[in-house]
Amino acid sequence: MTVSELPITAEARHDFADLASRPVLKRKRPGQLIAMVVVGLFAVMGAYVIVTNPGFGWPIVAKYLLDIRILNGLLTTIELTVIAMVLGLVIGLVIAVMRMSDNALLRGVAGAYIWFFRGTPLMVQMLFWGFAAVLFPTIGIGIPGGPMLVEWNTNDVLPLFVAGILGLGLNEGAYMAEIVRAGLMGVPAGQSEASHAMGFSRMETLRHVVIPQAMKIILPPVGNETISMLKTTSLVIVIGVGDLLYNAQQIYARNLQQIPLLIVASLWYILLTTILSLVQARIEKRYSRGNTIQARKA
């Protein structure tokens, strides 16, 4: 007799006491078992293909994984990621604060910046920076229309690596500005008001009250942006910066082992994104200070 068939009558009241003493079991869910079998089969098929297809060239992967050219490229990729992200964050913060300013001119400039850098493809911006010397053969400080006081050859002060940084960082700044702005707006207005009422200036309020609390809103998307940036840096190949992918290409251009070398690059990218994900989780935990969830644990 199942539970629902139990006679619920005054005479059967003693049965309820009996029910209350029975252990509770989990209902079986056969669908989950079927899904496991299907997924398992696909995994085995995938693994079989990867191991048995000689095209993957695993011995070649192993040979080049720690090749000095690959490692140099890897270092360049990491440098590009870090510097471009720092540049993007600084620009993003400045543009976001400008965008929320009382001053219409500052708001306009910030809006135009975002409009331009979000409105054109990153690859095109990258090429522009790469070809900057064509547009401005020399750069310097001087009087518009008059003599130049100092002057440099553009190609000297703007090596390709710097052009790559500018391309990535200025573009990132536009996206970061919107992330930062969302974070700043996510802090309740009462927080700034309380700070102003105490006598703190707008800048002090931003620094001591708003930004620390905006961080926990900003950090998850910044983590995403960093992970995304790590892979986006590979676009510098269009201006010939020797990053991970570029150096892998250089190698397979000679030995024609395209797939194994792309796997080498991919392995490094995925290792770095995995590390970044772990770092992101740790930083987020640190900035969740004062959160209700953490509060309950304390």
Partner: peptide, 23 residues
């Protein structure tokens, strides 16, 4: 703004929604 901030620092304010700094 500097003068206003200075005057504000001598006037305490308590809000309906507390507005304690959450962090």
């Amino acid at each position: 703004q500097k003068d206003i901030n200075k005057r504000r620092s001598r006037i305490g304010m308590v809000f309906q929604s507390f507005n304690l700094f959450g962090h």
